[in-house]
């Protein structure tokens, strides 16, 4: 469960990222975060992964107050989350297989388990055949699927995605989205930032809309409509 309690983020020079935001996301939910550029969506995501701290308020994930976690504990928080970025963030000199395996290696998993699990996950995202390729040898959509595989491999209860389809064409986006939907059906909570009207409208999930750092809309089975 995710809980934002009166969360504000103020950057340098009094730039406001989030302004007294409170909301709750239950386990197994699929939530879209929408809003115009600079509305504060990425700020909300970065709070969840511990990349930034709120200036005020508490960010609670699975009962843990993220903002009071020690720096040295942040990696363990991130292992319980799968994070997918717009720019994929794959390690360029590791193969598809190694990129996914890396996420397991850092948690100290045994080689045997890694060898068993990584091919399975790659099959799930449809990349079983490309295991030996390097990121620059595969397409953007495929790279994003690698990063989804990496996010999935440690069986997180929460997947966080910041514009995961931002660099993909409509068709590929749809493929990637159906992957997310399947993951969600298996019980994983998904929080996704997107600018895609089509995706939000097609998926019919909960929508939280931010504007100037404030929540202006929170709807079950919402649509994209930013009201402009």
């Amino acid at each position: 469960m995710i809980k934002f309690k009166n969360v504000s983020v103020v950057y340098d020079k009094d730039i406001i990222g989030l302004d007294n935001v409170s909301f709750k996301i239950d386990d197994g939910e699929f939530v879209f975060l929408v809003g115009k550029t600079g509305a504060g969506k990425s700020s909300a995501i970065k709070l969840l992964t511990g990349e930034i701290k709120p200036t005020e308020g508490d960010v609670i994930v699975d009962g843990i107050i993220v903002n009071s976690l020690k720096r040295s504990k942040i990696p363990y928080l991130r292992r319980a989350q799968g994070v997918v970025f717009q720019d994929f963030r794959l390690l360029p000199n590791k193969t598809v297989y190694e990129n996914v395996a890396f996420a397991m290696e850092i948690t100290g998993k045994k080689k045997k388990e890694i060898k068993r699990k990584v091919p399975k996950i790659l099959d799930i995202v449809g990349l079983g055949e490309r295991a030996g390729n390097y990121p620059n040898e595969i397409s953007g959509g495929e790279q994003q699927r690698v990063s989804i595989a990496r996010a999935l491999v440690n069986s997180p209860s929460l997947i966080i995605a910041d514009e995961p389809t931002g660099n993909l064409d409509v068709e590929t986006s749809a493929e990637v989205m159906s992957l997310f939907e399947e993951i969600n059906k298996m019980g994983t909570t998904i929080v996704m930032v997107t600018h895609s009207e089509k995706i939000v409208n097609d998926m019919q999930k909960r929508v939280i809309q931010l504007e100037n750092g404030c929540i202006v809309r929170d709807e079950e089975k919402g649509v994209y409509n930013l009201g402009i």
Partner: peptide, 15 residues
């Protein structure tokens, strides 16, 4: 960038 990615995936500083 590589180091940052490792951190995002949950690697410890030590690792």
């Amino acid at each position: 960038k590589e180091i940052q990615i490792m951190k995002f995936v949950g690697a410890t500083d030590h690792f």
